[in-house]
Write a protein that binds this DNA or RNA. Structure first.
Lengths: 157, 157
DNA sequence: GTTACTGCAAACGATTTGCAAGTGG
DNA sequence: CCACTTGCAAATCGTTTGCAGTAAC
């Protein structure tokens, strides 16, 4: 399957999942909700509410910020998106379907957030069952200095 | 050494560390800063700015919220405290000196935050050197359902 | 039709900022 | 004394809320 076709396939799939969720929750299927879902499943890695708002505007699809907040909450609820706060007041999101489990590397210097996939580590955390607590999901954020900033700092010395 | 003596020992130690940090940073040694450090190193696990403010008031030591924010920033900077955001807009802190490395278990239901120590897991993460990124610290937050809420839910069914 | 959803503007709450008065070095 | 700190109040900024109009079903 080509990359392009695969992407369309995922978009169809998540639309169906969202459909079912809305049905079960007795929520209405509005064009705004589907348009936001579609944008969330474009190829952007991490994005915030403001990005979604601006991007919708670019596409000449007028939505209020309230609706975006509302929809993102629904998407998080049905596990089609995840919400993160990487040490800032601002929340960022990422889509989860078709997106491998990963951790985040956050640069202390330039604040860039990178994804980091390590099956061994994921396995280890998953297997490490803790007593008296039933985990549903977790987030591992590793803070440090990225290679670009590391190079920049060396030059200064 | 008794538990009480040990606590006093830690308070003396962190005061010296803070002293050195303030000296190197050309910052002034004010009574407010020391009073806040002392409170941070009382036995509270996790606390927020408001808790510090109220607690200082109880001790009849008047400080403004601004000063508390300012001081906490300094403490984070010199690694005597860590700042967390467990999925809420509010930030919580914990002292780090004399506090073993640990992860956090956060209950989705009652939002309680528990500490979780697993030397094996800590070792594994530490050994898992990632290329082109120099980690300084990390935070692993595991979300799930705590035993109390799990029991409550069972009763409902 | 009924009821939920949307957009707007106002409210909110944690944090930051500007500034006059206070105090450490 | 000079510059950094403090306390206060106002400003900021992401997010939430209330409400009237609109659209699912």
């Amino acid at each position: 399957m080509t990359k392009e076709k695969e992407k369309i396939d995922i978009k169809t799939k998540v639309r169906t999942l969202f459909d079912n969720f809305l049905f079960l929750k007795h929520c209405r299927k509005t064009s705004e909700r589907y348009a936001i879902l579609d944008l969330v499943y474009s190829n952007k890695e991490h994005f915030d509410i403001e990005w979604l708002y601006k991007e919708m505007e670019k596409q000449s699809f007028r939505v209020s910020r309230s609706t975006i907040y509302n929809t993102m909450q629904l998407l998080v609820e049905c596990h089609l998106a995840q919400k993160h706060q990487f040490g800032k007041s601002i929340s960022v999101y990422e889509h989860t379907y078709g997106n491998d489990l990963h951790h985040h590397l956050i640069c202390n210097s330039c604040k860039k957030v990178m994804e980091y996939k390590d099956p061994g580590l994921i396995q280890f955390i998953a297997n490490n069952g803790m007593k008296r607590f039933t985990p549903t999901h977790y987030s591992l954020n590793i803070y440090g200095i990225c290679s670009a900033c590391s190079r920049k700092n060396k030059k200064k010395i």
